[in-house]
């Protein structure tokens, strides 16, 4: 039986059946596995890229924090240096004050001792002079008469009592 342009519905369905099997087969055997593999590989490199970016960001943050810390360390050092200078100045002043006190005390002690020693020396000298005078008088008395001696002794006793 002749049909228009030899169109046969049964053969169209056979063609459809054949093509559907081919498309499904190619999808399952080639298209899907290759796509899956490519997606996995893309994901792998994407993850790798993300990790690298993450590490890079972390390193940058670390670098910045170190820079900040370094700049703050400079300030801190300067502050500590100033404080230390002030402290050492104060300590030196205190030390000088204590040294001055000690020196003053030593000088005043020395002066007192010297005064005391001088007074003692003077006292000893006076006693020595009196004794020498007495000895001298006794010698003179032994050599002269008793009248003049009594006179002299009166004068000497008066002088010593003054």
């Amino acid at each position: 039986m002749r049909t228009l342009l030899n169109i046969d519905w049964q053969q169209i369905l056979l063609h459809l059946f054949n093509f559907l099997i081919l498309t499904l087969g190619l999808y399952l055997l080639l298209y899907k596995p290759v796509r899956d593999f490519m997606e996995k590989r893309e994901q792998y490199y994407h993850d790798l890229d993300q990790q690298a970016k993450e590490k890079n960001r972390y390193a940058e943050e670390l670098g910045l924090s170190y820079k900040e810390r370094l700049s703050s360390v400079d300030v801190e050092i300067e502050e500590k240096r100033t404080i230390a200078a002030q402290e050492s100045k104060q300590a030196a002043a205190l030390y000088l004050q204590s040294v001055e006190k000690r020196a003053t005390k030593i000088i005043s002690d020395a002066r007192k001792a010297a005064e005391k020693e001088r007074a003692q020396i003077l006292k000893d000298a006076q006693e020595d002079i009196v004794l020498m005078a007495i000895h001298a008088t006794e010698k003179l008395l032994a050599q002269s008469d008793s009248e003049s001696l009594d006179l002299f002794l009166d004068v000497a006793t008066k002088g010593a009592s003054k």
Partner: peptide
């Protein structure tokens, strides 16, 4: 080149 095949693919 078979019209039935072409119709099948066009329709699908």
């Amino acid at each position: 080149s078979d019209i039935n095949g072409a119709i099948a693919l066009g329709s699908l």
